[in-house]
Design a protein around this nucleic acid. Sequence first.
DNA 1: TAATTTGTTGTACGCACGTTCAATTAACAG
DNA 2: CTGTTAATTGAACGTGCGTACAACAAATTA
Lengths: 201, 201
Amino acid sequence: MSEAVTGTDGRKARGERRRREIIEATLRVIEREGVAGVTHRSVAAEAGAPPSLALYYFATLDDLLVAALTAASGEYSRQLRAIIDDGRDGVDGLAQLISDAAGPGRARALAERELTMLATRRPALRPVAGLWRAAVAEVAGLYTDDPILIRSLVAASDGICAGVLLEDNPIPYSEIRALLRHALGLDRPPITRGPAPAPRA
Amino acid sequence: MSEAVTGTDGRKARGERRRREIIEATLRVIEREGVAGVTHRSVAAEAGAPPSLALYYFATLDDLLVAALTAASGEYSRQLRAIIDDGRDGVDGLAQLISDAAGPGRARALAERELTMLATRRPALRPVAGLWRAAVAEVAGLYTDDPILIRSLVAASDGICAGVLLEDNPIPYSEIRALLRHALGLDRPPITRGPAPAPRA
DNA sequence: TAATTTGTTGTACGCACGTTCAATTAACAG
DNA sequence: CTGTTAATTGAACGTGCGTACAACAAATTA
């Protein structure tokens, strides 16, 4: 029972580290080649290990993808929660995160999105994929109780992120922030034109 | 030159039909198994043709996916434009389309989304993927000139659609419509609570 | 009719994949 | 030291894939 002394089995500790390395390697592969590029072989090569090791930790490719999504999704949610806990404005922080996805964080954001897309087909991944949405909803809850407005912010951040990743010219931070604040109903801009109930004119 | 009489070469006419059949088979495969399930063999089997025929029309898998995305994206944009041209309210029609994606149109919507995701990695597909966004922006243009509000509607429809596909309990049409109208700044609901500039309370 | 174009098919090659498994090494327990 | 557990490795098997290619059938043309 030297375990009680050192805390854990040294073998298992190294194993856990190796496991994390493989997950990170998986995310790098997805960033570079997309989910389609994930194979036991490619991931193992990226991690500098023989393919059999990737298989030792993740018996099936699905396990590997679930682990990768869990890691990526958790990381994003943690970032957002950290912003809130630091007392910074939630919407500003959210805008910053999305703005990041247009620049340096683009590859990672793409990876996370691709994995989330995967979740729509495998119910087992749904809860994990919902972590980010829940975190955004939590931010919205700091500003309003209206469930519609909360949904609105969640949808807006998702849609803005998609636009940022799809469009060529990056959307500036200020605009992202304005869009998010509008979604929450915070800033009431002057009415630009009366609603046009009858299109086609 | 009997071509001038019949209009087109009969062989080419049948060929075009066959080509469309293969594209539709591809979309069915994607609906059922996702983009990952698309192979020359699986698509050909779905279309009831030998694999070599799928290769005759689409030399590479990429060509096939591009054609599928073009078809799916065009179909959606066409539906939205038809609504506008029929004189129906653009936002209502948009809400109806998104609501459909939660029910009967779910599989197709998933397929289109997966293909669009693919577009973020291949610049050649970007213009095609943008067709839907352009159509939505056009709808928004019927209500406002404010580019922020236009972007807001595009982001909202995208985000709502993502939510609809990800969540278990379907979002009702009325709520989708309310979210879209809010994005456009049409309905100004009563203020639920003053903005909370200081979170962490 | 013969020649040409176009669509269509079957077969086959080489490769990368997921997965299995027995063997090996290292860390721990008694 | 002996046994046990856990991490790690290399080799191999079968499968399905993309792709190439030559041959065939049918429509069109001259």
